[in-house]
Simulated scan of single mutants.
Amino acid sequence: MTLADLIKDFIDTTKERLKTPISGAFLWSFIIFNWRPIVLLLFSNTSIENKIIVINHEYCNFWALFFPFFIALFYTILVPKLMLQIDKSLIETKEERINNIYLEKEHLVDKKTTLASKEFLLKSAESGNKEIQELLDQIESLKQHNFSLQESIKQINDSNKNTIEELNKRLKISNDSLIELQRNYSNTTKLIEKDRKKYDDLHNTIVGDTLHLQKSLATSILKAGDSLTFDEYLLLKTIEAKEEESVFFGNSAIGFRLLHDMSVKGILHYTISEEGREVVFTQTGFILADIIKSS
């Protein structure tokens, strides 16, 4: 596969993901809410390092993701449900209106039939059997027309009933999806809270797990652990690497910031390439990661 094919596959995959309701809504919400760092990144004349520092310091916070996610969730889930409730409230009114229209037509046909009967009597008196037959044919035609209207009304009612059943099915599916999302969100929140508790107690855990080590190494591990941010804690918990083995990270702004900060703290070393960064843990970093995974 050529590089052009890889780029084309990446673009096609991105387009498909953006077509989903939650992705499109979140993208627009994120751009609108975070327009300032985006404008700063695109149009500021300062260096890219200064742009990243300013954006990280001023705009990278919890609310920058929470508000766009909340708005996208509201737009994707609650707005369609609200529209569905409105449509359900109007179904009975629409059915009644359609029924009234066809009742009016049926009444008009009955009046025409009555009028035709009276005309028949008049023509019978005036013109005899020939015109009588013509009036009988006209009456029969009106009866057929009336029957056709009644069949049309029945078909419309059946169609409305099917529509209501389909809407009810979609509503049930939407409710089931919402319950599943809420359950996943609750589970994720519990896991984060559990990790946060372990993170808060990391100092005591390191002290207990490094008693058998040399004092200088134990002090280095404790110092590195005390300086860890929660994101760095999660990275060390999830990454899988053996001592002296390297781990490869692709290019990303967040990954670069974490790796740089952890390198300054003596947890790892990394080398830069066009494809990303190759990371090797120091002895301190490896032991610290092992303590975090074992806690």
Rank of each mutant, 00 (worst) to 15 (best):
D226P: 01
I139V: 07
Y185D: 01
L213K: 13
L211W: 15
Y185P: 00
S29I: 08
T20N: 09
R17D: 06
P21A: 08
D195H: 15
R277Y: 12
T205S: 08
G266F: 04
Q283F: 01
G250D: 12
I272M: 09
L181N: 11
S44V: 02
R36E: 11
I254V: 06
Y233K: 07
N50Q: 14
D195M: 08
R17M: 10
D5L: 14
S89N: 14
D176P: 02
E104A: 15
L288I: 00
T114C: 02
L191P: 00
I239T: 13
K242S: 13
D231R: 10
E244R: 12
S216I: 06
T113R: 15
F74M: 06
I77T: 06
L235Q: 10
N100W: 12
N146F: 12
I11M: 12
L213F: 15
S44F: 04
P37C: 05
S148M: 11
N168V: 07
F286I: 01
H212E: 11
I52D: 15
E240C: 03
G285S: 05
Y270H: 05
Y102E: 03
F147S: 09
L228A: 01
A218E: 03
S152G: 04
K123G: 08
N99M: 11
E104K: 14
K94C: 02
L65W: 13
K94E: 13
N100C: 04
R17V: 05
L217F: 10
I287C: 00
T219Q: 12
T14G: 06
A224H: 04
S295H: 09
S124K: 11
L40H: 14
M262V: 04
T114Q: 13
T2D: 15
A25R: 13
D12P: 00
R97N: 07
T210K: 02
E96I: 03
S159P: 03
L211S: 11
A64H: 04
W35P: 06
L149M: 06
N100Y: 13
N204A: 04
L142V: 07
I139F: 10
T163Y: 10
K154A: 11
A224V: 03
F67L: 14
E151A: 07
E240Q: 14
